[in-house]
Amino acid sequence: MAEPACPSADARRSARHRGSAARSVLIELPGPSCSPTQPEDRQGCAAPSIAQVNGRMRLALKKPIFYRYLNNRYKDRHWRSLMGKSGVLAQSANSSFSGKVFYLNRGKRHWVLSKDWIEENDFHFPDDVLQLPDEVILSFLPGQPATRAVDLRTVSITNVSEAREAAASQCRGSGLEIGAGSSPFPVPLHCQVQYGDMYSYEDLIRHAYTDQHLYDIVAPTVKTSLDRLDNILDESLDFIVACHVIEHTRDPIGAIHQAWKKLRPGGKIVLVIPSKPHTFDRNRSLTTLDHLIDDYRGVHVDRDQEHYKEFFSKADGFSDPEDGEEEKWFQEWKKGYSIHFHTWTYETFGAMVAWIDKNAVPFTEIWSHDVLPDGIEFYFTLTK
C-alpha cells in the first residue's frame, strides 16, 4: 500500500493503511427501482411525510405486530427457526428496490451490501430471505447498511464500498452522521447513530436530487451542521461521520476542530472528501494551506464572496455565459447556496490534517486512503 500522506511528528500518531484480500459481492437482482405500491412522482415513488415517518417508526417498533404478520404468512418450520434471531432478511416480493436484500431489525431496514455479511451472521442466502410486500419493508425506517467486520491490519481495499466500510469500521458507541441524505454511511450496526442536517426532512424531500429515492431519505434527528455542530455537547459523542460534507464548510480546519471538541477521548472523525481532479471542481484552483489557515483565523464577507465568484466562474455545469457570471454568483451568495468552498487532492488534504495535528488539536491516530479506480473520493479517519 502507498505510504500515508500525513504522518504526525509524534511516533504515536501514524496514518495506517492496512490490507487483506476480502472483497464485497454486491447482491443485485433485476427489478424496478422503487415500490409500485407507492404513488408515482418524478422519481417513481412519493416520499412519506414526517407524520408518516413517525407512524412507521411506531409500527416498526411494535415487534409483535410484525411477527404476527410473518407468522400468518410463513407457517413452515424454517421460518420458525428464524424467530430466535434479532432480525430477519427480507426482499420485496414485487422485485422492487432494485432487488436489494435488507436486514430488518429494531424498526430499521439495513441494505445488506454483501453475501459475506449474511454468512458472518449465520444466515443462508437465499433460503433465509423472506419475500415481503413493499408496504411491510417500507414500514421500517432507512438505516445504515449492514457491513462486514473489517480488520484494518489485513484488509485489502479495492473499491469504494470497501473503503467506506473500512473508514467507519472502528466506530463504537453512539455518534452522529452529518448530511446522510438518502445514503446513510456504513457505520457498524452495533453503533447508535443520530442523523444531523441543517435542513428539515421536508426540505430534504423538496430539494431531493433526481437520482435519490425519496423513501430512502433519512429524517434528521438533530438540526445542526458540520461547521457549527449546534445542539451537541462537548465530549458527548464517540464518532462523527461526514461524507462529502467538509467541502461545503467555509472553515474546514475550524469544522474539524469543533468536531474534535464534541468527541470523547478515542472518538473518531470519519471524513469522505471529493477529489478535485475527479469532480466538477476539476477546472478550479487547489485551495492552498495558507488560504485554509486564513479561513481558520477568520471568515470575512469579502473572502466569502471570493469563494462564490471562483466557484460559479470555473465549476463545470455551474457557469453559463448567458446568465451573467457576476449576477449569478451574487444571487446565490445572498441565498446561501451550498457550494464547494474549497478543493483538495488526497495529498493537499493530508497536509491540512498534518497542520491541524501540529497546531490546533492532536490526533492519536490518522488512517487514510487515496482515490480508488471506481471512485471520485478519498478517505480520512481521525482519532482523538
Rank of each mutant, 00 (worst) to 15 (best):
107 G>W: 11
158 T>G: 07
279 T>M: 03
217 I>C: 01
331 Q>I: 12
186 P>I: 00
125 F>G: 14
307 H>C: 10
315 A>G: 01
281 D>T: 05
283 N>D: 08
3 E>N: 13
14 S>Q: 15
34 C>R: 07
309 K>N: 02
180 A>W: 05
111 W>H: 09
105 N>F: 08
23 R>L: 10
1 M>L: 14
302 D>I: 07
355 W>I: 04
370 D>I: 07
227 D>Q: 09
174 S>L: 02
362 P>W: 06
119 E>Q: 14
21 A>P: 00
270 V>D: 12
51 A>L: 14
37 T>N: 06
381 T>E: 06
73 R>H: 01
220 P>K: 11
275 S>W: 13
336 G>T: 03
239 F>Q: 00
184 P>F: 05
37 T>S: 11
334 K>T: 08
195 Y>M: 14
333 W>S: 11
379 Y>H: 15
123 F>T: 05
249 T>W: 08
217 I>Y: 08
367 W>S: 10
41 D>G: 06
112 V>C: 03
153 R>V: 05
319 S>H: 07
292 L>N: 01
380 F>P: 00
61 L>Y: 03
31 G>S: 08
37 T>I: 10
373 P>G: 04
27 I>T: 04
164 R>D: 05
28 E>I: 12
305 Q>L: 15
213 H>P: 01
57 M>L: 10
345 T>D: 10
80 R>H: 04
110 H>K: 00
180 A>C: 15
73 R>E: 03
39 P>Y: 13
176 L>K: 02
51 A>Y: 09
198 M>Q: 12
25 V>K: 10
80 R>V: 05
175 G>C: 06
326 E>W: 02
74 Y>W: 08
238 D>L: 15
67 Y>V: 14
130 L>M: 09
355 W>N: 01
280 F>M: 08
